[in-house]
């Protein structure tokens, strides 16, 4: 394996937190409100993950994401459990891919409950497909420095005389 002994891997104790132990239909049923509720934290994590391209550097952000997800579902459980269960049950049993279009009625009931009790409106159509702008305090990783080769051919000096070509252009087929 390419992971040598020099590569730092976090200890298990650092990585063990309470995970989101929920099924697919449940996650899908809560997905839109969850995305809205944890928007900043999710954006922070995804930005870190994409910029660094290294799971080791975004563990704390990831833990925050999981904590926020758990908090959201706990709140839903406290306030809108019946409506939520109805909706996720509908999603689960109406189609093979948790399609939303079969469950507009139960979705309306659930959205109404979330709006009234948690003051969390359902985000607009295609909200999470849009490009997102995120302001973060984490410094941007430096770009890879340009490679310097000691045996590279030296370039022309800045003030070297550059004469016009003696035999015209050497562009494509125009010469020869």
């Amino acid at each position: 394996m390419v992971v040598t002994a020099d590569v730092y891997l976090p200890e298990d104790s650092e990585l063990t937190v309470q995970e989101v132990n929920l099924s697919g239909s449940t996650l899908y049923a809560g997905s839109f409100h969850l995305g809205k509720y944890c928007e900043t934290i999710n954006n922070e994590y995804m930005l870190c993950r994409q910029e660094e391209n290294d799971p080791r550097k975004c563990i704390n952000e990831g833990k925050a994401v999981t904590a926020c997800t758990l908090e959201f579902f706990r709140k839903v459980k406290k306030t809108c459990l019946a409506e939520f269960n109805q909706y996720s049950n509908c999603l689960d049993k109406s189609s093979g891919d948790y399609a939303f279009r079969h469950c507009r009625k139960t979705q309306g009931v659930f959205d109404q409950c979330m709006l009234e009790k948690l003051n969390l409106p359902r985000p607009g159509f295609g909200y999470f497909c849009e490009a997102r702008v995120h302001d973060t305090k984490r410094p941007k990783p430096l770009p890879e420095p340009k490679a310097v080769y000691p045996d590279a051919t030296p370039a022309l000096p800045e003030d070297a005389e550059k004469k016009p070509p003696r035999l015209g252009s050497r562009f494509y087929w125009m010469t020869e």
Binding site: L15, S31, G35, C38, R49, G62, K63, T66
Partner: peptide, 27 residues
Amino acid sequence: IEMRSAKMAIYPALLAERDREYLKQLR
């Protein structure tokens, strides 16, 4: 588009869990 929205909304939560488990497995 709606389905993709939903998937993108839950993706960070799934990815965070996956990353932790992946690092554990690498160890």
